[in-house]
Amino acid sequence: MIFLIMIYIVIFLLNVPGLINRKEWRELTVFLVLYIIAFIMGLMYTLDVPIPSPMEGLQYLIAEVLGIKYPKN
């Protein structure tokens, strides 16, 4: 947890000052959005909040709904 926050502080410090100096506002917004998503995901992981797996959804969609699958042994 503390570790996670420290890593994200470092990531923040590595990127943001440069972006502000260069006045790249569009980059900064994208960065911040991704940064917040990443941080929330990390937080969810450390707090053991279940994160839905996109592959399981796809598996359900493709194998069960569309019925495309290979026969099992």
Partner: peptide
């Protein structure tokens, strides 16, 4: 991603995307 969003450089995206990837990798299976 940066091309899609029309950014000038991709370097600010590297670390946040790495963070997202790690969590996806850890939880996807």
């Amino acid at each position: 991603v940066s091309q899609l969003l029309g950014l000038k450089s991709y370097s600010p995206l590297v670390l946040p995307l790495a963070g997202i990837e790690v969590i996806i990798a850890a939880t996807v299976f």
